[in-house]
Amino acid sequence: MSNSNMNLKLKVWRQQNAKDEGHFEDYTVQASPDMSFLEMFDVLNEQLITEGKNPVAFDHDCREGICGMCSMVINGRPHGPKQGVTTCQLHMRSFSDGDTIVVEPWRSNAFPVIRDLSVNRSAFDRIIASGGYVSVNTGNAVDANATLIPKETADEAFEAATCIGCGACVSACKNASAMLFVGAKVTQLSLLPQGQAEASKRVVAMVNQMDAEGFGACTNTGACSAECPKQIPLSVIATLNREYIKAKLKGY
């Protein structure tokens, strides 16, 4: 570990449960610039446990930017100041010695706080369960060229499929809208032949579920895409709008 330790002041959101009002608590922590943001939180929690206090609850799993569990709003930005990274991939070298860092949970009615920085994102699961899949049995892996898919289309579908469902889009949006997430799923599935058969039914079911969960409507500020750790493009929302209107006008 590097010798040049950083002294940081943290303002961390503490909340017992969904019903609790919640408040900020101030901590000081020493961290190495080589630590990830979550490792810095591990140090803080060790410190709190030693002092006989409750550690800060936060979500994490893979710590390599693919599981979509980590979820912290750092100085007003989901996943912190860097573009295209999750909180776990953010390093303390992105901050300076003596900085005060404010850490809050994702805030949206649809994502109730479970405890501290940990929020319940099962609204996303229910949206996926409403239609974000292909229900026909596609059988064994077939010959690569049996179904012709242009490379550009495959790339576009893949780009949308890189969404890890972390919810940073909802967190960044001033309307707490989930349209980048839903748009990514709809785009990915509607571009490929396996998903096209159910495209209309799917988009209507997913948008109905999205609305039922209490997410806001999109006003095209572009904040979601700018903060997305996987840099999902805004065009997926246009695709979602187009697919939805097409389906509704067909009577779905």
Binding site: V73, G76, E104, A176, G216, G222, A223, A226, E227
Partner: peptide, 15 residues
């Protein structure tokens, strides 16, 4: 859709 607001918001960083 967001009853509990953020204490720090950095809207200018993304829109």
């Amino acid at each position: 859709a967001r009853k509990k607001r953020y204490s720090v918001s950095a809207g200018s960083a993304n829109s």
